[in-house]
Design a protein around this nucleic acid. Structure first.
Lengths: 228, 228
DNA sequence: CCATTTTGAATGAATGTTCAACAAATGGTG
DNA sequence: CACCATTTGTTGAACATTCATTCAAAATGG
Protein backbone atom coordinates (compact mmCIF):
# COMPACT_ATOMS: atom_id res chain seq x y z
CA UNK A 1 0.00 0.00 0.00
CA UNK A 2 2.76 2.38 0.93
CA UNK A 3 4.49 1.36 -2.23
CA UNK A 4 1.39 2.17 -4.24
CA UNK A 5 1.33 5.72 -2.93
CA UNK A 6 4.94 6.48 -3.70
CA UNK A 7 4.59 4.99 -7.14
CA UNK A 8 1.55 7.12 -7.81
CA UNK A 9 3.52 10.15 -6.78
CA UNK A 10 6.24 9.53 -9.32
CA UNK A 11 3.73 8.78 -12.00
CA UNK A 12 1.92 12.01 -11.40
CA UNK A 13 5.02 14.08 -10.93
CA UNK A 14 5.84 13.79 -14.61
CA UNK A 15 2.39 14.86 -15.69
CA UNK A 16 -0.23 17.16 -14.30
CA UNK A 17 -2.92 14.68 -13.44
CA UNK A 18 -5.76 16.28 -11.51
CA UNK A 19 -5.74 15.13 -7.93
CA UNK A 20 -9.38 15.71 -7.18
CA UNK A 21 -10.99 12.40 -8.10
CA UNK A 22 -8.29 10.11 -6.86
CA UNK A 23 -8.93 9.95 -3.15
CA UNK A 24 -12.69 9.74 -3.50
CA UNK A 25 -12.55 6.77 -5.78
CA UNK A 26 -10.01 5.10 -3.59
CA UNK A 27 -12.27 5.29 -0.60
CA UNK A 28 -15.37 4.10 -2.36
CA UNK A 29 -13.85 1.33 -4.38
CA UNK A 30 -10.30 0.80 -3.41
CA UNK A 31 -9.81 -2.10 -5.74
CA UNK A 32 -11.10 -0.56 -8.91
CA UNK A 33 -9.28 2.66 -8.29
CA UNK A 34 -6.12 0.74 -7.72
CA UNK A 35 -6.67 -0.96 -11.03
CA UNK A 36 -6.87 2.34 -12.87
CA UNK A 37 -3.85 3.62 -11.06
CA UNK A 38 -1.88 0.54 -12.02
CA UNK A 39 -2.84 0.96 -15.64
CA UNK A 40 -1.82 4.59 -15.60
CA UNK A 41 1.42 3.62 -13.92
CA UNK A 42 2.15 1.12 -16.66
CA UNK A 43 1.26 3.65 -19.35
CA UNK A 44 3.68 6.14 -17.85
CA UNK A 45 6.37 3.49 -17.76
CA UNK A 46 5.64 2.79 -21.42
CA UNK A 47 6.11 6.44 -22.31
CA UNK A 48 9.39 6.39 -20.40
CA UNK A 49 10.56 3.38 -22.34
CA UNK A 50 9.50 4.78 -25.68
CA UNK A 51 11.33 8.01 -24.94
CA UNK A 52 14.46 6.30 -23.73
CA UNK A 53 14.73 3.36 -26.08
CA UNK A 54 12.46 4.08 -29.02
CA UNK A 55 9.61 2.00 -30.34
CA UNK A 56 11.59 -0.93 -31.67
CA UNK A 57 13.51 -1.45 -28.43
CA UNK A 58 10.61 -1.04 -26.07
CA UNK A 59 9.95 -4.41 -24.43
CA UNK A 60 7.38 -5.67 -21.97
CA UNK A 61 10.18 -6.46 -19.54
CA UNK A 62 11.47 -2.90 -19.72
CA UNK A 63 8.02 -1.48 -19.07
CA UNK A 64 7.49 -3.79 -16.11
CA UNK A 65 10.91 -3.02 -14.70
CA UNK A 66 10.33 0.69 -15.17
CA UNK A 67 7.13 0.42 -13.16
CA UNK A 68 8.83 -1.70 -10.53
CA UNK A 69 6.53 -4.65 -11.13
CA UNK A 70 6.87 -8.19 -12.32
CA UNK A 71 7.03 -9.44 -15.88
CA UNK A 72 3.60 -10.91 -16.24
CA UNK A 73 1.71 -7.93 -14.92
CA UNK A 74 1.29 -6.11 -18.18
CA UNK A 75 -0.55 -8.99 -19.81
CA UNK A 76 -2.94 -8.98 -16.91
CA UNK A 77 -3.94 -5.33 -17.11
CA UNK A 78 -3.62 -5.04 -20.87
CA UNK A 79 -4.09 -8.17 -22.87
CA UNK A 80 -1.09 -7.79 -25.09
CA UNK A 81 1.80 -5.53 -25.93
CA UNK A 82 -0.11 -4.04 -28.81
CA UNK A 83 -3.04 -3.13 -26.62
CA UNK A 84 -0.72 -1.53 -24.11
CA UNK A 85 0.76 0.63 -26.83
CA UNK A 86 -2.65 1.59 -28.17
CA UNK A 87 -3.77 2.54 -24.66
CA UNK A 88 -0.63 4.62 -24.27
CA UNK A 89 -1.23 6.39 -27.55
CA UNK A 90 -4.86 7.00 -26.63
CA UNK A 91 -3.75 8.46 -23.32
CA UNK A 92 -1.39 10.90 -24.99
CA UNK A 93 -3.96 11.80 -27.59
CA UNK A 94 -6.61 12.55 -24.96
CA UNK A 95 -4.18 14.64 -22.99
CA UNK A 96 -3.15 16.71 -25.99
CA UNK A 97 -6.75 17.13 -27.06
CA UNK A 98 -7.90 18.28 -23.63
CA UNK A 99 -5.01 20.70 -23.44
CA UNK A 100 -5.67 22.67 -26.59
CA UNK A 101 -9.41 22.72 -25.95
CA UNK A 102 -8.79 24.19 -22.51
CA UNK A 103 -6.43 26.78 -24.00
CA UNK A 104 -9.02 27.75 -26.54
CA UNK A 105 -11.61 28.08 -23.79
CA UNK A 106 -9.39 30.38 -21.76
CA UNK A 107 -8.72 32.65 -24.71
CA UNK A 108 -12.10 34.35 -24.61
CA UNK A 109 -13.95 35.61 -27.66
CA UNK A 110 -11.29 37.44 -29.63
CA UNK A 111 -10.33 35.21 -32.58
CA UNK A 112 -6.85 36.72 -32.82
CA UNK A 113 -6.24 35.85 -29.21
CA UNK A 114 -7.77 32.42 -29.70
CA UNK A 115 -5.38 31.58 -32.51
CA UNK A 116 -2.45 32.86 -30.53
CA UNK A 117 -3.38 30.78 -27.50
CA UNK A 118 -3.80 27.73 -29.69
CA UNK A 119 -0.32 28.21 -31.08
CA UNK A 120 1.22 28.86 -27.70
CA UNK A 121 -0.50 25.83 -26.22
CA UNK A 122 1.69 23.63 -28.39
CA UNK A 123 4.78 24.79 -26.56
CA UNK A 124 3.49 24.49 -23.05
CA UNK A 125 5.82 22.54 -20.77
CA UNK A 126 3.15 20.04 -19.82
CA UNK A 127 2.77 19.00 -23.44
CA UNK A 128 6.03 19.97 -25.02
CA UNK A 129 8.81 18.21 -23.17
CA UNK A 130 11.48 15.80 -24.26
CA UNK A 131 9.84 12.74 -22.83
CA UNK A 132 6.49 13.14 -24.49
CA UNK A 133 7.81 14.48 -27.77
CA UNK A 134 10.08 11.47 -28.02
CA UNK A 135 7.15 9.17 -27.37
CA UNK A 136 5.07 10.93 -30.02
CA UNK A 137 7.84 10.56 -32.53
CA UNK A 138 8.18 6.88 -31.72
CA UNK A 139 4.52 6.37 -32.57
CA UNK A 140 4.68 8.51 -35.68
CA UNK A 141 7.45 6.35 -37.01
CA UNK A 142 5.24 3.29 -36.88
CA UNK A 143 1.89 4.88 -37.65
CA UNK A 144 1.90 4.60 -41.42
CA UNK A 145 2.46 0.86 -41.37
CA UNK A 146 -0.02 0.19 -38.55
CA UNK A 147 -3.63 0.97 -39.35
CA UNK A 148 -4.52 0.81 -35.67
CA UNK A 149 -2.36 3.81 -34.89
CA UNK A 150 -3.30 6.04 -37.76
CA UNK A 151 -6.41 7.61 -36.27
CA UNK A 152 -4.71 8.52 -33.01
CA UNK A 153 -1.18 9.27 -34.01
CA UNK A 154 -1.84 12.60 -35.62
CA UNK A 155 -2.66 14.15 -32.25
CA UNK A 156 -4.03 17.06 -34.25
CA UNK A 157 -7.25 15.67 -35.65
CA UNK A 158 -9.72 16.91 -38.23
CA UNK A 159 -11.60 19.02 -35.75
CA UNK A 160 -8.41 20.71 -34.62
CA UNK A 161 -7.59 21.52 -38.21
CA UNK A 162 -11.08 22.87 -38.81
CA UNK A 163 -10.76 25.22 -35.82
CA UNK A 164 -7.57 26.55 -37.37
CA UNK A 165 -9.25 27.06 -40.71
CA UNK A 166 -12.23 28.85 -39.16
CA UNK A 167 -10.00 31.17 -37.18
CA UNK A 168 -7.92 31.97 -40.25
CA UNK A 169 -11.12 32.69 -42.17
CA UNK A 170 -12.34 35.06 -39.48
CA UNK A 171 -9.01 36.88 -39.35
CA UNK A 172 -8.96 37.12 -43.12
CA UNK A 173 -12.24 38.99 -43.14
CA UNK A 174 -11.41 41.37 -40.36
CA UNK A 175 -7.92 42.02 -41.68
CA UNK A 176 -8.54 42.00 -45.39
CA UNK A 177 -5.94 39.38 -46.19
CA UNK A 178 -5.96 37.70 -49.53
CA UNK A 179 -5.02 34.03 -49.10
CA UNK A 180 -7.22 31.00 -48.72
CA UNK A 181 -7.89 30.13 -45.08
CA UNK A 182 -7.42 26.42 -45.74
CA UNK A 183 -4.02 26.98 -47.26
CA UNK A 184 -2.65 29.30 -44.60
CA UNK A 185 -4.07 27.08 -41.87
CA UNK A 186 -2.23 24.14 -43.35
CA UNK A 187 0.99 26.13 -43.50
CA UNK A 188 0.58 27.17 -39.89
CA UNK A 189 -0.29 23.79 -38.43
CA UNK A 190 2.42 22.11 -40.49
CA UNK A 191 4.95 24.57 -39.11
CA UNK A 192 3.88 23.74 -35.57
CA UNK A 193 4.41 20.06 -36.22
CA UNK A 194 7.71 20.79 -37.88
CA UNK A 195 8.87 22.75 -34.88
CA UNK A 196 7.90 19.84 -32.67
CA UNK A 197 9.91 17.61 -34.93
CA UNK A 198 12.99 19.77 -34.46
CA UNK A 199 12.52 19.76 -30.73
CA UNK A 200 12.15 15.99 -30.76
CA UNK A 201 15.29 15.53 -32.76
CA UNK A 202 17.24 17.70 -30.39
CA UNK A 203 18.58 19.95 -33.10
CA UNK A 204 20.88 22.43 -31.44
CA UNK A 205 19.44 25.59 -32.88
CA UNK A 206 15.92 24.79 -31.73
CA UNK A 207 14.72 25.21 -28.17
CA UNK A 208 11.23 25.77 -26.85
CA UNK A 209 11.98 29.49 -26.84
CA UNK A 210 13.28 29.74 -30.40
CA UNK A 211 10.44 27.54 -31.60
CA UNK A 212 7.94 29.87 -30.03
CA UNK A 213 9.74 32.84 -31.62
CA UNK A 214 9.41 31.22 -35.00
CA UNK A 215 5.73 30.54 -34.48
CA UNK A 216 5.16 34.14 -33.46
CA UNK A 217 7.11 35.36 -36.47
CA UNK A 218 4.81 33.34 -38.69
CA UNK A 219 1.73 34.86 -37.10
CA UNK A 220 3.15 38.35 -37.50
CA UNK A 221 4.02 37.73 -41.14
CA UNK A 222 0.72 36.13 -42.07
CA UNK A 223 -1.57 38.38 -40.02
CA UNK A 224 0.28 41.72 -39.76
CA UNK A 225 -2.86 43.66 -38.85
CA UNK A 226 -3.48 41.43 -35.85
CA UNK A 227 -0.05 40.52 -34.56
CA UNK A 228 2.20 43.15 -36.10
CA UNK B 1 27.26 -3.62 -67.43
CA UNK B 2 23.97 -4.15 -69.13
CA UNK B 3 22.70 -5.80 -66.00
CA UNK B 4 23.76 -2.80 -63.99
CA UNK B 5 21.49 -0.60 -66.00
CA UNK B 6 18.45 -2.79 -65.66
CA UNK B 7 18.88 -3.11 -61.92
CA UNK B 8 19.10 0.61 -61.50
CA UNK B 9 16.00 0.99 -63.57
CA UNK B 10 13.93 -1.29 -61.38
CA UNK B 11 15.28 0.40 -58.31
CA UNK B 12 14.15 3.79 -59.48
CA UNK B 13 10.89 2.59 -60.90
CA UNK B 14 9.66 1.63 -57.46
CA UNK B 15 9.66 5.29 -56.50
CA UNK B 16 6.78 6.18 -58.75
CA UNK B 17 5.11 2.90 -59.54
CA UNK B 18 2.26 2.15 -57.10
CA UNK B 19 3.47 -1.23 -56.02
CA UNK B 20 4.39 -4.71 -57.10
CA UNK B 21 5.35 -5.34 -60.71
CA UNK B 22 8.93 -5.46 -59.49
CA UNK B 23 11.58 -8.15 -59.19
CA UNK B 24 13.43 -8.88 -62.35
CA UNK B 25 13.24 -12.63 -62.05
CA UNK B 26 15.32 -12.94 -65.18
CA UNK B 27 18.66 -12.00 -63.72
CA UNK B 28 18.20 -12.45 -60.04
CA UNK B 29 19.40 -15.93 -59.25
CA UNK B 30 22.89 -17.21 -59.45
CA UNK B 31 24.10 -14.41 -61.60
CA UNK B 32 26.71 -12.34 -59.98
CA UNK B 33 26.30 -8.65 -60.07
CA UNK B 34 29.00 -6.24 -59.12
CA UNK B 35 29.41 -5.59 -55.46
CA UNK B 36 28.10 -2.05 -55.69
CA UNK B 37 25.00 -3.07 -57.59
CA UNK B 38 24.16 -5.76 -55.08
CA UNK B 39 24.56 -3.34 -52.22
CA UNK B 40 22.34 -0.79 -53.91
CA UNK B 41 19.81 -3.49 -54.60
CA UNK B 42 19.75 -4.45 -50.94
CA UNK B 43 19.48 -0.82 -49.89
CA UNK B 44 16.48 -0.35 -52.15
CA UNK B 45 14.90 -3.46 -50.72
CA UNK B 46 15.51 -2.05 -47.26
CA UNK B 47 13.72 1.17 -48.16
CA UNK B 48 10.85 -0.92 -49.49
CA UNK B 49 10.62 -2.85 -46.26
CA UNK B 50 10.84 0.26 -44.10
CA UNK B 51 8.06 1.86 -46.09
CA UNK B 52 5.85 -1.19 -46.03
CA UNK B 53 6.46 -2.55 -42.54
CA UNK B 54 8.04 0.24 -40.56
CA UNK B 55 11.31 0.16 -38.68
CA UNK B 56 10.33 -2.27 -35.95
CA UNK B 57 9.03 -4.89 -38.36
CA UNK B 58 11.82 -4.67 -40.90
CA UNK B 59 13.76 -7.93 -40.82
CA UNK B 60 16.80 -9.20 -42.61
CA UNK B 61 14.70 -11.96 -44.12
CA UNK B 62 12.23 -9.46 -45.52
CA UNK B 63 15.01 -7.43 -47.07
CA UNK B 64 16.57 -10.51 -48.62
CA UNK B 65 13.22 -11.74 -49.91
CA UNK B 66 12.43 -8.31 -51.31
CA UNK B 67 15.70 -8.37 -53.21
CA UNK B 68 15.06 -11.94 -54.37
CA UNK B 69 18.18 -13.24 -52.66
CA UNK B 70 18.94 -15.67 -49.89
CA UNK B 71 18.91 -15.04 -46.17
CA UNK B 72 22.58 -14.90 -45.50
CA UNK B 73 23.43 -12.46 -48.21
CA UNK B 74 22.93 -9.28 -46.26
CA UNK B 75 25.52 -10.20 -43.67
CA UNK B 76 27.97 -10.79 -46.46
CA UNK B 77 27.63 -7.38 -48.09
CA UNK B 78 26.93 -5.46 -44.93
CA UNK B 79 28.32 -6.86 -41.73
CA UNK B 80 25.19 -6.52 -39.67
CA UNK B 81 21.64 -5.30 -39.72
CA UNK B 82 22.64 -2.06 -38.07
CA UNK B 83 25.25 -1.35 -40.73
CA UNK B 84 22.73 -2.05 -43.45
CA UNK B 85 20.36 0.47 -41.94
CA UNK B 86 23.09 3.05 -41.55
CA UNK B 87 24.10 2.57 -45.17
CA UNK B 88 20.47 2.96 -46.20
CA UNK B 89 20.12 6.15 -44.22
CA UNK B 90 23.37 7.46 -45.65
CA UNK B 91 22.12 6.69 -49.14
CA UNK B 92 18.93 8.64 -48.61
CA UNK B 93 20.79 11.49 -46.99
CA UNK B 94 23.21 11.75 -49.89
CA UNK B 95 20.40 11.68 -52.39
CA UNK B 96 18.47 14.42 -50.64
CA UNK B 97 21.57 16.49 -50.23
CA UNK B 98 22.55 16.21 -53.88
CA UNK B 99 19.03 17.08 -54.93
CA UNK B 100 18.70 20.40 -53.15
CA UNK B 101 22.21 21.43 -54.08
CA UNK B 102 21.44 20.79 -57.73
CA UNK B 103 18.22 22.79 -57.45
CA UNK B 104 20.08 25.66 -55.91
CA UNK B 105 22.63 25.52 -58.69
CA UNK B 106 19.94 25.66 -61.35
CA UNK B 107 18.26 28.66 -59.78
CA UNK B 108 20.85 31.17 -60.98
CA UNK B 109 21.89 34.25 -59.05
CA UNK B 110 18.59 35.75 -57.95
CA UNK B 111 18.21 35.01 -54.23
CA UNK B 112 14.41 35.15 -54.40
CA UNK B 113 14.45 32.52 -57.09
CA UNK B 114 17.02 30.49 -55.20
CA UNK B 115 14.85 30.32 -52.12
CA UNK B 116 11.84 29.41 -54.20
CA UNK B 117 13.68 26.63 -55.96
CA UNK B 118 14.93 25.33 -52.64
CA UNK B 119 11.39 25.17 -51.34
CA UNK B 120 10.04 23.58 -54.46
CA UNK B 121 12.80 21.00 -54.50
CA UNK B 122 11.33 19.50 -51.36
CA UNK B 123 8.21 18.50 -53.23
CA UNK B 124 9.82 17.05 -56.29
CA UNK B 125 8.53 13.59 -57.14
CA UNK B 126 11.96 12.04 -57.04
CA UNK B 127 12.36 13.03 -53.40
CA UNK B 128 8.84 13.45 -52.19
CA UNK B 129 7.00 10.17 -52.70
CA UNK B 130 5.26 7.79 -50.37
CA UNK B 131 7.98 5.21 -50.35
CA UNK B 132 10.84 7.48 -49.38
CA UNK B 133 8.87 9.65 -47.02
CA UNK B 134 7.77 6.56 -45.16
CA UNK B 135 11.36 5.41 -44.93
CA UNK B 136 12.45 8.80 -43.62
CA UNK B 137 9.77 8.73 -40.99
CA UNK B 138 10.80 5.25 -39.92
CA UNK B 139 14.32 6.51 -39.28
CA UNK B 140 13.14 9.66 -37.54
CA UNK B 141 11.19 7.55 -35.10
CA UNK B 142 14.35 5.80 -33.98
CA UNK B 143 16.83 8.61 -34.34
CA UNK B 144 16.58 10.15 -30.90
CA UNK B 145 17.39 6.92 -29.13
CA UNK B 146 20.19 5.92 -31.52
CA UNK B 147 23.19 8.19 -31.52
CA UNK B 148 24.42 6.64 -34.74
CA UNK B 149 21.41 7.93 -36.66
CA UNK B 150 21.25 11.42 -35.28
CA UNK B 151 23.73 13.05 -37.59
CA UNK B 152 22.15 11.67 -40.75
CA UNK B 153 18.50 11.52 -39.92
CA UNK B 154 17.79 15.20 -40.12
CA UNK B 155 18.31 15.16 -43.87
CA UNK B 156 18.42 18.93 -43.61
CA UNK B 157 21.79 19.55 -42.04
CA UNK B 158 23.44 22.62 -40.57
CA UNK B 159 24.68 23.80 -43.93
CA UNK B 160 21.22 23.54 -45.42
CA UNK B 161 19.86 25.62 -42.57
CA UNK B 162 22.61 28.19 -43.02
CA UNK B 163 21.76 28.57 -46.70
CA UNK B 164 18.19 29.28 -45.69
CA UNK B 165 19.29 31.86 -43.15
CA UNK B 166 21.58 33.60 -45.63
CA UNK B 167 18.88 33.77 -48.26
CA UNK B 168 16.39 35.15 -45.76
CA UNK B 169 18.95 37.76 -44.70
CA UNK B 170 19.52 38.84 -48.29
CA UNK B 171 15.79 39.11 -48.96
CA UNK B 172 15.33 41.03 -45.76
CA UNK B 173 17.75 43.70 -46.90
CA UNK B 174 16.40 44.04 -50.40
CA UNK B 175 12.79 43.98 -49.23
CA UNK B 176 13.06 45.95 -46.02
CA UNK B 177 11.47 43.28 -43.85
CA UNK B 178 11.77 43.52 -40.12
CA UNK B 179 12.18 40.01 -38.69
CA UNK B 180 15.32 38.14 -37.80
CA UNK B 181 16.58 35.95 -40.65
CA UNK B 182 17.36 33.08 -38.28
CA UNK B 183 13.85 33.07 -36.90
CA UNK B 184 12.01 33.23 -40.21
CA UNK B 185 14.33 30.62 -41.68
CA UNK B 186 13.50 28.29 -38.82
CA UNK B 187 9.80 28.89 -39.35
CA UNK B 188 10.14 28.17 -43.05
CA UNK B 189 12.24 25.03 -42.80
CA UNK B 190 10.10 23.71 -39.96
CA UNK B 191 7.01 24.19 -42.10
CA UNK B 192 8.62 22.21 -44.90
CA UNK B 193 9.34 19.35 -42.55
CA UNK B 194 5.85 19.58 -41.13
CA UNK B 195 4.36 19.35 -44.61
CA UNK B 196 6.49 16.30 -45.24
CA UNK B 197 5.16 14.84 -42.04
CA UNK B 198 1.58 15.32 -43.18
CA UNK B 199 2.35 13.70 -46.49
CA UNK B 200 4.01 10.80 -44.71
CA UNK B 201 1.05 10.28 -42.46
CA UNK B 202 -1.30 10.24 -45.39
CA UNK B 203 -3.58 12.90 -43.95
CA UNK B 204 -6.45 13.32 -46.35
CA UNK B 205 -6.31 17.06 -46.72
CA UNK B 206 -2.66 17.08 -47.69
CA UNK B 207 -1.35 16.17 -51.11
CA UNK B 208 1.81 17.20 -52.84
CA UNK B 209 -0.16 19.96 -54.55
CA UNK B 210 -1.77 21.40 -51.43
CA UNK B 211 1.52 21.16 -49.58
CA UNK B 212 3.20 23.17 -52.30
CA UNK B 213 0.39 25.71 -52.15
CA UNK B 214 0.91 26.11 -48.43
CA UNK B 215 4.63 26.58 -48.90
CA UNK B 216 4.03 29.22 -51.55
CA UNK B 217 1.53 30.96 -49.30
CA UNK B 218 4.16 31.15 -46.62
CA UNK B 219 6.67 32.71 -49.01
CA UNK B 220 4.09 35.24 -50.17
CA UNK B 221 3.19 36.13 -46.60
CA UNK B 222 6.73 36.40 -45.34
CA UNK B 223 8.26 38.06 -48.40
CA UNK B 224 5.41 40.00 -50.04
CA UNK B 225 7.76 42.24 -52.03
CA UNK B 226 9.38 39.22 -53.67
CA UNK B 227 6.59 36.70 -54.06
CA UNK B 228 3.42 38.81 -53.77
C1' DC C 1 42.02 -23.88 -60.12
C1' DC C 2 41.43 -19.99 -57.20
C1' DA C 3 38.93 -16.12 -55.35
C1' DT C 4 34.65 -14.36 -54.78
C1' DT C 5 29.90 -14.66 -54.13
C1' DT C 6 25.70 -17.10 -52.67
C1' DT C 7 22.99 -20.42 -50.33
C1' DG C 8 20.31 -22.38 -46.60
C1' DA C 9 20.34 -24.77 -42.49
C1' DA C 10 21.96 -24.50 -37.67
C1' DT C 11 22.54 -21.76 -33.62
C1' DG C 12 21.71 -18.93 -29.89
C1' DA C 13 19.78 -14.93 -27.98
C1' DA C 14 15.79 -12.01 -27.12
C1' DT C 15 11.10 -11.49 -26.20
C1' DG C 16 5.81 -11.87 -25.90
C1' DT C 17 2.68 -14.85 -23.82
C1' DT C 18 0.85 -18.36 -20.75
C1' DC C 19 -0.03 -20.33 -16.42
C1' DA C 20 0.09 -22.48 -11.93
C1' DA C 21 0.86 -20.94 -7.56
C1' DC C 22 0.55 -17.34 -4.21
C1' DA C 23 -1.13 -12.94 -1.80
C1' DA C 24 -4.51 -9.69 -0.69
C1' DA C 25 -8.81 -7.64 -0.52
C1' DT C 26 -13.82 -8.40 -0.38
C1' DG C 27 -18.19 -10.14 0.91
C1' DG C 28 -21.07 -13.07 3.12
C1' DT C 29 -22.36 -15.85 7.27
C1' DG C 30 -22.86 -17.24 11.85
C1' DC D 1 -16.22 -9.69 15.18
C1' DA D 2 -14.31 -14.05 13.44
C1' DC D 3 -14.13 -17.14 9.82
C1' DC D 4 -14.03 -18.75 5.36
C1' DA D 5 -14.97 -18.61 0.30
C1' DT D 6 -14.41 -16.00 -3.66
C1' DT D 7 -12.83 -12.67 -6.52
C1' DT D 8 -9.04 -9.91 -7.81
C1' DG D 9 -4.29 -8.89 -8.25
C1' DT D 10 0.67 -10.40 -8.65
C1' DT D 11 4.65 -13.20 -9.35
C1' DG D 12 8.20 -15.63 -11.84
C1' DA D 13 9.36 -19.53 -14.34
C1' DA D 14 8.34 -22.20 -18.52
C1' DC D 15 7.24 -22.09 -23.31
C1' DA D 16 7.06 -20.99 -28.11
C1' DT D 17 8.29 -17.97 -31.55
C1' DT D 18 10.90 -14.82 -34.11
C1' DC D 19 15.06 -13.21 -35.76
C1' DA D 20 20.10 -11.86 -36.51
C1' DT D 21 24.14 -14.18 -37.13
C1' DT D 22 27.33 -17.88 -38.40
C1' DC D 23 29.34 -21.09 -41.44
C1' DA D 24 30.29 -25.11 -44.22
C1' DA D 25 29.26 -26.27 -48.66
C1' DA D 26 27.99 -25.11 -53.30
C1' DA D 27 28.02 -22.15 -57.28
C1' DT D 28 30.04 -18.85 -60.22
C1' DG D 29 33.36 -16.25 -62.92
C1' DG D 30 37.97 -15.38 -64.38
Amino acid sequence: MLETVTLMKTAEATDNVPESTRKGDAEKRGRKASKEVRQLQLIEATIDSLAKRGYAETTMADVADGAGLSRGIVNFHFESKEKLLIATLQHMYDEYSAHWRASLQKAGDDPARQLQQLVWADFDRSICNKRKLAAWLAFWGEAKSRPTYQALSSSRDNYYQQVFIDLCATLKESGGYSYEPQVIALALSAMLEGLWLRLMMGTEDTTRETALQAANAFLAAAFPKHYG
